[in-house]
């Protein structure tokens, strides 16, 4: 990538998509991407080539559903929204993620791990 922003990697992208949809309700693909970038304080750049397959995967797994609708500026767009299973999955993944980061934080905190 030409810019210095980090790419979002696969596993976390799904979590971010779910969280975004929880916060925003119905949203189209472009909106999801922008929202993720904004939330990250423009530190992240969403690769659209991975975003759409990821959306498809989530939909196949039943965590989100999609519907064609009309956007704010009267454009035909595909809107995604969270399903009940998706809500549960989000809770679960968020919990796991917190655990992971907590563990990693302990490792990275200076002096805590004996050499």
């Amino acid at each position: 990538m030409a810019n210095d922003k980090s790419d979002v990697w696969q596993g976390t992208l799904a979590l971010m998509v779910l969280k975004t949809l929880e916060a925003m309700g119905e949203l189209h693909g472009y909106g999801i991407a922008r929202r993720i970038e904004q939330t990250s304080g423009d530190l992240l750049s969403v690769n659209y080539g991975t975003l759409y397959p990821a959306l498809l995967k989530l939909e196949q797994e039943g965590y989100i559903s999609s519907e064609w609708g009309v956007s704010d500026n009267n454009r035909k767009a595909k809107f995604y929204k969270l399903t009940r299973a998706g809500r549960k999955q989000l809770e679960k993944e968020a919990r796991e993620w917190e655990q992971t980061t907590a563990i990693l934080a302990r490792f990275l905190a200076p002096g805590e791990v004996s050499r």
Partner: peptide, 29 residues
Amino acid sequence: AWFLRVGGLFGKQRRDSELAAELECHLQM
């Protein structure tokens, strides 16, 4: 997901055009 993927083997053209429409919409936005 597996079943849906098997389903994805069919109706290839319709799905392709749907994706093209979605990406086009993305681009326009």
